[in-house]
Write a protein that binds this DNA or RNA. Structure first.
Length: 882
DNA sequence: AGAGTCACG
DNA sequence: ACGTACGTGACTCTA
């Protein structure tokens, strides 16, 4: 049989696992007080790789301590690294125990790193005709790839890897695996703390290698290179580079005393593994083990609910678990497949949702004293509403709570989510219902009913644990006072829907169709041939190969034809302007005319979006099916789409209020910057005020529109976690100028500077950032080795509290708003939310009331250190609210 | 299914 | 030196 060898870089993968589950650090503690997150993550990765590779032979290599031949050669090697957390080191011996139970050989060698052991064995395996897979978190190991050796580098979480073959290395970097060491030699390695050639980074290195092949090749030709700073650096740092290359080179001949033939993998010792899992308190792995040993899944008890036993439900007087199954995601239109109801292990199931309308059940559900525990209360509320039933008091919503605990837990599948929280008695819907075209509700009653019963059991079982975690995070208020009431408000808005004038849309559509075919003909003439303008590939061919226009930007797959590129090309050829025009109209046509028409419900001429309440990483909502949060407004052409959004009654109007600069006001609040707060308190135009400060102007007259525009861009940039490059691109200035703008900004608003530094520091220490309402976002990459990932996490750390707090504020306003509308007995209805804007419909005569009420509710939603400002507009259509 | 593009805050 | 602004969803083409 063909030999398949799996080699694992033990330290690297364990470290990766530790940080991937860092946000769960305190949940992974066994009864002895040992942290187990790295062990758990390592095990997950192990299972995943064994399943994917099906190895006949395996070995896990470890580093053998601090000093190696590399430290002997260069004493700063891996110097200056942050100390390994003790929570991590304490787990290492147990990872080795785990491997023993798995029957996997592990090995370490004094004076050598795990890399060298792997390199040596991979080389031997290649000779012996094995197929080898190397698993590591360290990209440098890609130098080992050959035709028979694949290197799988962990990218995200614990089980996602990127597989490097020689072809993949070539494709990503444009060099061969053997040239990786030349590249490292030139660039050095910050995380291992050795330098290469000054000012030479990956890009320069790759360019040089493509030209000269190897580091030696570069130096052989160095004299012929034209004079430049780079040449000087190359000459000066020659020795350093040579040393770096040696440091980066993985040994292929380490003096190992294991033989390839010793590595046979025969599978785990199940008893030993079970005992290990018991000590570690790994319930889910224990479960899997039992499944493997062919023990039947524990059956679950349930009762089929019928008209005859309905009365039994009257015993439920304290709390009720409830789940309504709708097979498709859109609960406004989905069929009903069945439901489950019960409490304390007594589960009643039926496919017949008409039973829900029986008073016994309906009263239970709509009761405001008997609390319901559910999964996705908004979905449940809308679904029940279609059956004429109100969902009353909800105590626990597993979906909402999981999202608040960790915004990454945003799967909509109850089974997957439960598993995330260590509950393994519930398979995913995909497992039970199938996926894709094969997805269907099981015909077998027992299969389906058991699944529904297990859903209730999961909700009931996880409730105490999750509520405890919520309290520990100080998120009780966020849950009780914001997200739960929010779910109800959103359900009402979704049910209300907004009326769309389809004849208006259709009229616009035929105009667009006509214009499109005209432009299309012009483009074909200018191109000299017909092609698909919607295909970036074909368009790129025409523009850059046939017409030979200059290439400004490339994408992964070819030439970029994005707007910013085309705008630069417009002066070169008239076809470009026509393409831009075509793109603009075709976007409006496909997404907003045709797309919107498709979404109109024929029953009421309305669109009913769904707001996703548990998706975004910041706490904002998102809107789907259709997305009503990105209806065109910036360009007049598209803005006209808004004329199709009309009130649902004769004599009514559309009314809208929006927060003005809410994110900058939040910024002024949380940074406590005196200068920025003063500007808002004085009611100044903040962009003009910023302009005067950073450009040192003395009077408001000196703020020209262009200067104000630049200051506005800087303000935005700050909110996004600015970089000089990003700002320079945005407003078309040099990087140096952008840098000086930013420096001036921080000097003028020192509180902002201080906040930005502190929030990044806080994120690095605690692993997450928070909004004013204790909404939390974990940033696992904040301490990443990769500059890119780390920088991204740092910008996120700066932006999330701002964007997220603004989201908190409008949510609070919406909840208060809904109450006020009801209390005032108004007919006005809240229809839409677009991040900083609320849209209503109301009888004309209520407009004056709304003009006072809405802004007052919005600006007093929370008390900040600066005032909140709200602007209102109204008219006959959404278009007219300007 | 993923990439490219473009609509919004 | 590194490679770049934060958060979304829908449509079209192409593998």
């Amino acid at each position: 049989m063909a030999k398949k060898l799996l080699l694992i870089d033990g330290n690297s993968v364990a470290f990766r696992a530790f940080f991937a589950l860092h946000n769960q650090l305190e949940r992974f503690v066994n009864p002895d007080g040992l942290h187990t997150n790295a062990i758990y993550g390592f095990n997950t990765m192990l299972d995943h790789m064994i399943k994917a590779v099906e190895p006949t032979d395996m070995l896990v290599a470890f580093d053998a301590g601090k000093t190696t031949f590399r430290t002997a050669m260069y004493d700063n090697y891996k110097g200056g690294r942050a100390k390994t957390p003790s929570e991590f080191s304490e787990q290492m011996p147990y990872i080795k125990q785990l491997l023993d139970a798995y029957g996997i050989k592990h090995y370490e060698l004094k004076d050598y790193e795990a890399d060298d052991i792997i390199g040596t064995l991979a080389g031997q395996a290649d000779q012996a005709g094995y197929t080898t897979t190397v698993v590591t978190g360290d990209r440098d190991l890609t130098q080992l790839t050959t035709e028979h050796t694949t290197v799988a580098v962990t990218v995200k979480g614990v089980s996602e890897v990127e597989r490097y073959t020689p072809a993949h290395v070539e494709e990503k970097l444009g060099i061969t695996p053997a040239q990786i060491i030349d590249m490292k030699g030139l660039t050095g390695d910050t995380s291992d703390n050795y330098p290469g050639v000054t000012k030479v980074g990956e890009k320069t290195a790759l360019k040089l290698l493509k030209q000269y092949g190897t580091m030696e090749g570069i130096y052989e030709n160095i004299d012929a290179m034209k004079q430049s700073k780079m040449k000087e650096h190359l000459i000066e740092d020659r020795e350093q580079a040579a040393q770096a290359k040696v440091l980066a080179t993985i040994k292929r001949d380490a003096p190992i005393d294991v033989q390839l033939t010793d590595l046979t993998y025969a599978g785990p010792d199940l008893d030993q593994l079970a005992a290990f899992y018991q000590t570690m308190d790994f319930q889910s792995f224990l479960k899997k083990l039992h499944l493997q040993s062919d023990e039947p899944a524990t059956p679950i008890d349930y009762t089929v609910l019928t008209k005859d036993n309905l009365a039994e439900l009257q015993q439920l007087t304290d709390h009720v678990d409830f789940y309504l199954e709708m097979p498709t995601p859109n609960y406004h239109t989905s069929a009903f497949a069945g439901f489950a109801i019960g409490a304390d292990g007594h589960w009643y199931i039926s496919r017949n949702v008409e039973l829900l309308m029986q008073p016994t059940v309906a009263d239970l559900l709509s009761s405001t004293t008997i609390a319901k525990d559910v999964f996705d209360m908004k979905r449940t509320t809308v679904g029940l509403n279609r059956l004429g039933i109100q969902l009353g008091k909800v105590d626990f919503d597993l979906l909402l709570v999981s999202y608040l605990l960790d915004t990454n837990d945003n799967s909509n599948d109850l089974g997957s989510l439960a598993e995330q929280h260590g509950y393994t008695d519930l398979p995913s819907d995909e497992t039970v219902y199938g996926k894709g075209v094969k997805r269907a509700i099981p015909e077998d009653d027992d299969v389906f009913f058991s699944h529904l019963a297990r859903k209730l059991a999961a909700i009931a079982d996880l409730k105490p644990q999750l509520l405890k975690e919520l309290a520990a995070n100080e998120q009780d208020q966020l849950y009780d006072d914001i997200e739960k009431p929010m779910a109800n408000v959103l359900a009402q808005m979704e049910i209300a829907g907004i009326t769309v004038d389809s004849s208006r849309l259709k009229a616009m559509g035929s105009q667009f169709t006509e214009r499109l075919s005209e432009i299309e003909q012009t483009i074909y003439q200018e191109a000299g041939e017909e092609f698909n303008i919607n295909s970036p590939k074909q368009l790129g061919h025409i523009l850059f190969e046939e017409m030979k226009l200059p290439v400004i930007k490339k994408t992964k797959t070819g030439y970029s034809t994005a707007v910013d590129v085309l705008e630069k090309l417009a002066p070169e050829a008239p076809i470009v302007a026509n393409i831009l025009q075509y793109r603009q109209i075709s976007k409006i046509q496909s997404t907003y005319v045709v797309g919107l028409l498709d979404a109109i419900h024929s029953t009421d001429q309305k669109v009913h979006t769904r707001y996703l309440q548990t998706l975004t990483q910041t706490g904002r909502l998102s809107s789907v099916d259709p997305n009503l949060q990105n209806i065109p407004v910036r360009l007049e052409e598209g803005r006209k789409i808004r004329q199709a959004f009309v009130p649902s009654h004769e004599g009514w109007q559309i009314f809208s209020s929006d927060y003005s600069q809410i994110e900058l006001r939040v910024l002024a609040h949380i940074t406590n910057d005196e200068n920025m707060q003063a500007a808002f308190k004085a009611g100044d135009d903040i962009h003009a005020a910023t302009a005067m400060r950073i450009f040192h102007l003395n009077s408001a007259e000196e703020v020209t529109p262009n200067i104000r525009r630049q200051a506005k861009a800087v303000n935005f940039g700050i909110v996004y976690g600015i970089s000089d490059y990003g700002l320079s691109q945005n407003i078309g200035i040099t990087r140096k100028q952008a840098r000086s703008f930013i420096d001036a900004y921080f000097k003028e608003y020192p509180g902002v500077k201080k906040y930005m530094d502190e929030i990044v520091q806080t994120a690095k220490e605690q692993g997450y950032v928070e909004t004013i309402s204790h909404r939390r976002r974990y940033l696992p990459d904040i301490n990443s080795k990769s500059f890119n990932q780390r920088s991204f996490a740092e910008r996120t750390a700066m932006n999330t509290p701002i964007q997220g707090s603004a989201a908190d504020i409008i949510k609070i306003a919406m909840i208060k708003m809904q109450d006020k509308l009801q209390a005032a007995g108004l007919k006005a209805t809240m229809l839409l939310q677009v991040h900083d804007e609320l849209i209503f419909e109301a009888p004309k005569e209520e407009i004056p009331v709304l003009e006072k009420l809405v802004p007052s509710v919005m600006d007093s939603a929370v008390q900040l250190a600066v005032p909140l400002k709200v602007e209102s507009h109204y008219g006959d259509t959404w278009y007219d609210t300007k």
